[in-house]
């Protein structure tokens, strides 16, 4: 495969994945609303026809696989292109990646590998709900002890309680810290990648390069900070199973007094 085609593939799959990350973030930030809000959203997503749901999942998985496979090919070729390293290593450019000159050309591959580990853990944690992560899916599902009730009267129905599952999931400091570290690496990856993809397909010039670099950094900060806010807020006790503490409209005013949580 020609080297430029590999770069096109990295750029296009990267764009899809950045788009997914932004959409996923917007959905997740509903954790800062009343529990019903995100549970209703989850109900909507799960009510998609299975064919549509699995097409989207399959397409995203394909993008991830192509991004990884081609990334490995590029990293290998790039290592092979300089068999003997310079003794005196230095960088004279100010690109975000060059700030980590000591990593040489491993900046994107290394942040990518950690992100892959993060994605695998995240899927096992909240999508597959593997036993070792401490999440018992049945507890949150219809009929489970933590199931949520949406609507009232004839409309009332039990649904999967995503809100409670996330709060429980992030109540383990080690898990939350791993999420936060993963998201810092997402920042590092996107700060370079989101601008670089424009250059790879030829849609950049010296006038737009600083602007796109700034936009990429801005987007990376927003995405990473947004995702970090959720585990951080759960650890800090701001998001509880009842919703956000002291958020007017989220909870009855009575529960909105800051007190030490009652011991269980």
């Amino acid at each position: 495969m020609p080297s430029l085609v590999k770069k096109y593939l990295m750029a296009i799959t990267g764009l899809v994945l950045v788009g997914f990350a932004v959409g996923h973030l917007v959905g997740n930030l509903q954790m800062f609303c009343a529990p019903d809000k995100i549970n209703r959203y989850a109900e909507l997503l799960h009510s998609m026809p299975p064919a549509a749901l699995w097409s989207i999942r399959g397409f995203l998985a394909l993008c991830v696989l192509v991004h990884i496979r081609v990334g490995i090919m590029l990293a290998k070729e790039n290592r092979a292109a300089r068999p003997e390293q310079y003794e005196f290593k230095t960088s004279r450019n100010a690109s975000p990646a060059s700030k980590f000159g000591f990593l040489g050309n491993l900046y994107m591959p290394l942040s990518g590998v950690v992100l892959l580990a993060f994605i695998v853990f995240h899927l096992l944690h909240f999508t597959v709900r593997a036993a070792f992560t401490g999440i018992v899916a049945a507890d949150y599902d219809k009929g489970g002890k933590f199931a949520a009730t949406l609507g009232s009267g004839a409309e009332a129905r039990e649904v999967f309680n995503v809100h409670a599952m996330v709060v429980d999931g992030f109540s383990h400091p080690a898990v939350s810290i791993f999420y936060i570290v993963g998201m810092i690496l997402l920042f590092a990856h996107l700060a370079h990648g989101t601008s670089s993809m424009f250059q790879s397909v030829g849609l950049r010039n010296e006038k737009w390069r600083p602007r796109l670099d700034l936009l990429a950094k801005g987007l990376a900060v927003v995405v990473a900070a947004g995702f970090i806010a959720i585990p951080a807020a759960v650890l800090a006790g701001v998001i509880t199973k009842d919703g956000v503490k002291c958020c007017k409209g989220c909870q009855p005013a009575a529960s909105c007094t800051i007190e030490a949580p009652a011991s269980k």
Partner: peptide, 29 residues
């Protein structure tokens, strides 16, 4: 056996003749 472009811009900083990344973008296009 040359490597691929990672868009770090080291080349542009090193070029004694001030060739810019614009020409890499044009090549990509």
């Amino acid at each position: 056996g040359f490597g691929s472009c990672t868009n770090y811009g080291e080349c542009q900083a090193a070029c004694p003749k001030g060739i810019t990344l614009d020409f890499i973008a044009q090549l990509n296009r």
